[in-house]
Amino acid sequence: MSKFLKLIYNELYKIYVRQSTWVMYILLALIVLGGAILTTTFDDITTEYSDNWREELTQENEKLLNQNTEMAENSGPEFTVEYNSGEIAKNNYYLEHDIRPLNYGAWQYVQENAGLLSFVSLFTIIIGASVVASEFKWGTIKLLLIRPISRTMILLSKFSAVLVFALFSLVFVMLSSLLIGGIFFGFEGINPHIVLEKTEGFTYVPLIGETLSAYGYNIINLVMMTTFAFMISTIFRNSSLAIGLGIFLMMGGSMVVGIFRDYDWAKYILFANTDLKQYETGNVLMEGMTLGFSITILIVYFIVFISLSWVFFNKRDVAGQ
């Protein structure tokens, strides 16, 4: 193994040898399992379409339409009406284009679980916030930094290990969703396609590609928040502060943007740029923002976070508390 790989191995070893890490994975598995159980018990989207799918879709539309008129009379919740109208439109698209709708299955479950990446973010923030600060807490930082290895390499190996942890966890969510989804709902086939609403209206797209891009969009926020927590913990050598701030910003980031969205400079806020999906859906947060602009902003923030971590980690004395 190369020197640097051995360092990353060491860091991953310290992450995975601890029970608290396994608790995170057990929680993720339970959430994935719980989701599948809830879906089978309460949701009717598992409806299997038979060869009579055209009739079934028409019936479903009628049912939804009835529901909507009822809602309108009793002034029911608006979002249900909207949701139903969307479903009707989608069903009509299937009928018009003569596409047999896909039965619900493992791949769709995997895709829906892209939302679980906020748990992965949460756990990665915790790991990223502790990976440097814990060494200070345990006093082991002294034994790490007296080796013939530069501090830059030590820091880099720690950051890389955190990203590898994120990747493993993400793959864990996907694979466990696929497995549990497969057991509960079966598989959709080799290369399933579904109809999704995009900027240009409804389109018929490959499900696996769609799934990967859903996960991909979530990774950006994950990486940025983790890097932020990593920086805070490296500067202040305190993991609680970093975890707190990291989670607060992960959840409240979009709110911050919301507060300042009337100002022109709000587009330079990190959280205005973490959701790159806005450029695919066309639902752009603020005027004048482009994909290139957001990517530039993200890179700038990333470099600033990493540089600050590096400066503080390299320059400061490791003295007693």
Binding site: K6, Y9, W138, R147, P148
Partner: peptide
Amino acid sequence: ELYPFMTGWQNLLHFARMYQ
């Protein structure tokens, strides 16, 4: 101060990996 959640052997392996 060594890693309390690792065995003595694991601790030594960890530091040994930092050398050639």
